[in-house]
Write a protein that binds this DNA or RNA. Sequence first.
DNA 1: ATAATAATTATTACCTGCTGCTAAATCCTG
DNA 2: CAGGATTTAGCAGCAGGTAATAATTATTAT
Lengths: 192, 192
Amino acid sequence: MSKTSLVKKERQDSLRDKIKTNPFLTDEDIAAQLTVSVPTVRLYRLELGIPELRERIKNVAEDNYNKVRSLDSSEIVGELMDIQLGSQGVSVLETTKSMTFEKSKIVRGHFIYSLAESLAIAVIDANVALVGVANIKYKIPVYAGSRLYAKAQVKSNKGNSFIVWVNIMERQTEVFRGKFILVALEKSEQSQ
Amino acid sequence: MSKTSLVKKERQDSLRDKIKTNPFLTDEDIAAQLTVSVPTVRLYRLELGIPELRERIKNVAEDNYNKVRSLDSSEIVGELMDIQLGSQGVSVLETTKSMTFEKSKIVRGHFIYSLAESLAIAVIDANVALVGVANIKYKIPVYAGSRLYAKAQVKSNKGNSFIVWVNIMERQTEVFRGKFILVALEKSEQSQ
DNA sequence: ATAATAATTATTACCTGCTGCTAAATCCTG
DNA sequence: CAGGATTTAGCAGCAGGTAATAATTATTAT
């Protein structure tokens, strides 16, 4: 209400912003940026319910730990349930809110694609395989919380070229189907 | 060389594993799991060059901070450079090591697909759009560190259905091309 | 069996980035 | 100038360590 309150509010907003854009700042860093003392920063955080640096870092780490596993660096997206190299395979993905479009709550296509693509690659009996061509169809939208079953079948194999069909089901409904033409760069140990 | 050395090595391997699968363990937790003392765990970490819990958490957080922005919850994969709704758009993605297959160091297709798909969706003049069909071709492999330019063009628009072509270039070379058939669930504010 | 060596454990001082608390100083407004 | 709001200072204590030293406990070769 008073002039001071406005200044305070502005500073608190600024603090919130700074931490949002960079959660790796110590109270000391923030104090310097806002030109207030460290105790004031702590007071502000307390008032705003913003946790300390280490908590924030931990939150970022935890938030992303599973996500990243599910999409970034793991060798396969989803969980491999069953596989017969060179023939067929099954994998499963539990969809979550973080995979959806905010507006529509529908799971982004690339998560479904990734499930299919990585299964197609896994099912090939080769050390290194790349997708050359993919023809895919999303048949019905998928919402967060669905459990997606992907089934891949190797349809043909001529030399280094493989054709793999992948169908993704949610319960009894097919939500996706795709044909992948893959190229093996290296055959499996078996044949080396 | 000695029997003890083997025990030690096994324990150190086990420690490495445990931390790899769960970097959120304190030395105390680890000590309990290995049934050794806390100082031993510290000694092992020192010998193996594994940093302390807080460092590890920070690394996970930092590693993923940008990635997640680039692939999970952001509305678009890559950075949108230019867009004319309903007509065309350009986005850019810097590829990193974490996007590659470990063995071949080639960028996983789904990152490229995601760049293309999200640009195709962004370029449509609709609030909510979904991919129905995609026909895509990966022309040459992409390695970590490449800067990928994606260009999307809306080729046709009949009712709620759109056809968008996306080409992805690395320098002067086309690495990917795809045709997306999209369906708009809701038209943009403009037409509402 | 025993000295030598490796491996493990204990102990202590110190560090960062805090929390929680109390108290003092400063600012602003009426 | 009183009086509340706001800011700052100062201190004890905490988690999860580092770094260093010393003591204890295997293990092994001889």
